[in-house]
Write a protein that binds this DNA or RNA. Structure first.
Lengths: 358, 358
DNA sequence: TGCTGCACGTGAAATTTTTCTGTATTGTAG
DNA sequence: CTACAATACAGAAAAATTTCACGTGCAGCA
């Protein structure tokens, strides 16, 4: 290779040990076991190592990252596409990727969580990609343990200040904003949002929707259903919007599977898409399978996965750098589920909805 | 633990080495590096080890399996669900799971394939789960290298005799048979199959269809499109069936995404589902999103994943046992895309199809 | 306050892994 | 058929890891 340094004397644990005034065994522990070593000693060993060799990481045999899919069955193919993106980037950079799913409670102090055994293997797993749905307690725990990690920001529960760790977002807030503006530009004024705002990915989409509505001087109206089942959220949310007599001409579903539930509810109520009601979704997972095909917000999960690994690898290389947030844009995909709405139709539309309520 | 043996003297590499009359280093290599050791010596070391200790595998630190997703973007969520099933079973048995995707050419002799580096790490990866689409050259290579593996039988290209390795099948042949019989029981006589028979998963489904048709004394008629894009296969295959003037009253799509293409083609031709033509699919990935909802064959990918890992773990524990094939059954899911067909309608149906051809 | 037990953290020693080196074997060209 | 080269492979030695046993400090308890 292109190693220009003359390798003065054999560089090994022995040398580090003598510089740091500890035993070889301790150096070995610091360098990979990492467990059961006094932080002060660990620090001095690391310093000694840094003195002697720049790239101790290179020296190691296996470089693996863990991909933790948390609290979520791999629905919608969305997360599996994130995994693929992550894997592709890993492969290109000669990292292995361990896949593991993990369920943990959201409302338990970080002390009481126990990490999967893989992550204990500091000599194998050098960092963690957190996909799925996470809550701040796990982030804290990883922070305390000093395990480098990146998290998919869209799906973090609870108050989440992104300043404290590397995080990748899919810009669904902007996507929701764009989409709402699009519906407004088509002439819609009464646009209902259906989702479960208790879940962060719905909340973010809703935030974009809400902002766009307020900017346009329109009243946001939403129907939130406290469920984890997305088709159910869409179905019940729509039924409830209709039952309240909201004169909606368009419904914004918080994601594509939810839109599927919306479709079903509208059909059950005898309403036609898009003639009676326009529908839009978000995430572009199953929108193209629906009928009529769904106007939605395309996200780029492979890109999210790639970005996450990229941030993580950078952090491992330079643990000191300050946390970095990355946002991946979204794209508005226009399909057949929307139509232009003439304000003059409003009375007629209201009539149709009245009919549907019977 | 429940170790009843008295552990006569410290059991270690030293003891094995002396029994096998080789150096400790060689024993170490056999036990994990495995590379660069004469097969004869390897065998004798293994024998010596077996003499001394039953469970040398237990001794090892990391037990990881590799999940190789081959030659396939993770479409349809089908393979990601296999992964989830595999991971769940791994976790329950304290195995780690490395995920890696891999593309390789099908028509290259096994000598010329190069395995991903992870698999070289015999000390880490103890076996391989082959998902995605595989061809026999990779199977041969793994066999030669002595790497334990299981393969998803449905997606193996080329002549594949399952006698030579552990293999798990989803019983889509039976599923295709059941489905065809179901269509026949609804009164359909002229049933077209749409797919790409060059691809093994279509071929298997088609085999079931063909057998059922022949058993019923009906003529199989299929339209195969040489493409990898499933929606395209469905669309073009259907268009071509119609263009040939086949008086089909039902179409069997080789999988759900293909059925989506079939839907589109029928709609473009002005035909109603199921009034003019009944449609069925296979795999139950997106069938529930289609409109009308698709009658299809449910498969159980999580179960497939679990079974694969189970076979693999058994083989690792006992490499001598003879190859074992496992078949996971399928389930017929009846939805809205089929209707009963009265033979008397045949002339009318033919008329509708004629109209569609214009 | 002093004792006891326990958990942590360390170095020495034992064990294992990896590198290095010498030898044998196989293939290839003359 | 010989000479040379390239490669494979085992063992010795070096390096790294893990185990073991011991000291230290702290909490619980008398």
């Amino acid at each position: 290779m292109s190693d220009t340094r003359p390798k003065k004397s054999k560089l090994g644990l022995r040398e580090i040990a003598s510089v740091a005034h500890v035993s070889i065994a301790t150096v070995s522990r610091v360098l990979n076991g990492s467990n059961r070593v006094d932080p002060a000693i660990q620090k001095s060993v690391l310093a000694a190592a840094a003195d002697l060799e720049i790239d101790f990481l290179q020296r190691k045999k296996t470089k693996a990252l863990a991909f933790l899919l948390c609290n979520r069955a791999m629905q919608h193919a969305f997360h599996s596409r994130i995994l693929l993106g992550a894997e592709a980037y890993c492969a290109s950079r000669n990292w292995e990727l361990l896949f593991q799913s993990l369920d943990y409670p959201a409302h338990v102090p970080s002390k009481e969580l126990l990490l999967p055994k893989v992550l204990q293997r500091h000599d194998l797993v050098r960092g963690v990609v957190l996909a799925g749905t996470n809550s701040t307690n796990l982030l804290e725990l990883l922070g305390e343990k000093g395990v480098p990690f990146v998290v998919l920001g869209n799906n973090v529960m609870g108050e989440f200040t992104d300043a404290k760790c590397d995080v990748v977002f899919s810009d669904d807030v902007q996507g929701g904003h764009d989409m709402t503006r699009y519906l407004i530009s088509l002439g819609h004024r009464c646009i209902g949002f259906v989702g479960n705002i208790g879940l962060p990915w719905f909340a973010r989409c809703f935030a974009g929707y809400q902002r766009a509505m307020e900017e346009a001087g329109l009243a946001p109206r939403h129907s939130t259903v406290n469920s984890e089942n997305e088709a159910e959220i869409g179905y019940l949310g729509t039924k409830s919007l209709l039952a309240r007599g909201e004169p909606v001409t368009a419904i914004f579903a918080g994601n594509d599977p939810t839109a599927h539930g919306v479709y079903k509810a509208l059909r059950d109520s005898g309403l036609n898409i898009p003639d009676d009601v326009s529908v839009v979704g978000c995430d572009d997972t199953v929108g193209s399978y629906l009928y009529p095909t769904l106007t939605t917000i395309r996200e780029f999960p492979e890109q999210l996965g790639k970005q996450m690994v990229e941030l993580l690898v950078n952090r491992i290389a330079d643990p000191g750098q300050k946390p970095q947030p990355v946002t991946v844009p979204t794209e508005l995909i226009k399909r057949d589920s929307c139509r232009r709405f003439q304000p003059s139709e409003e009375i007629a539309a209201a009539g149709a909805l009245q009919g549907a309520m019977i």
